[in-house]
């Protein structure tokens, strides 16, 4: 029996945190460019383009994190990696998913209350 791949195992454990990083980059970069290039005032259905983008990115990221938590909790200990490290990997996926979910929602919350470019 071969050893599990390090890249695959690590990616699986901490993929939710990579989602956090991508989400953070997207919402920060989009807001910065929208303000710098003066198109933050564009509206659709009464909501600004920044609100739409941040909200959409947050929903997608949160859904991805939730899916990872769900699959991690459903995976049976020891089966996924076929090694003695057993439940460590799925536990870590679920826990980092929970942390990611919290961080994503908390960081996106200001879009509901804070003026975008002032």
């Amino acid at each position: 029996m071969g050893s599990p791949s390090f890249a695959g195992t690590t990616l699986r454990m901490f993929a939710p945190l990579i989602i956090w990083a991508v989400h953070f980059l997207v919402v920060y970069a989009f807001t910065a460019i929208a303000c710098e290039r003066n198109f933050a005032g564009t509206e659709w259905l009464g909501l600004g383009i920044v609100t739409w983008t941040v909200g959409g990115a947050t929903l997608i990221a949160a859904a991805a994190a939730l899916a990872m938590i769900w699959f991690a909790l459903r995976s049976r200990p020891g089966v996924a990696l076929r090694t003695e490290i057993g439940s460590f990997v799925p536990w870590m996926t679920a826990a980092s998913g929970a942390l990611t979910l919290l961080a994503i929602l908390w960081e996106a919350l200001p879009v509901l209350f804070v003026p975008v470019c002032s």
Partner: peptide, 8 residues
Amino acid sequence: IPQLSLSF
């Protein structure tokens, strides 16, 4: 820096 960015 824009206020919303600061909030993130």
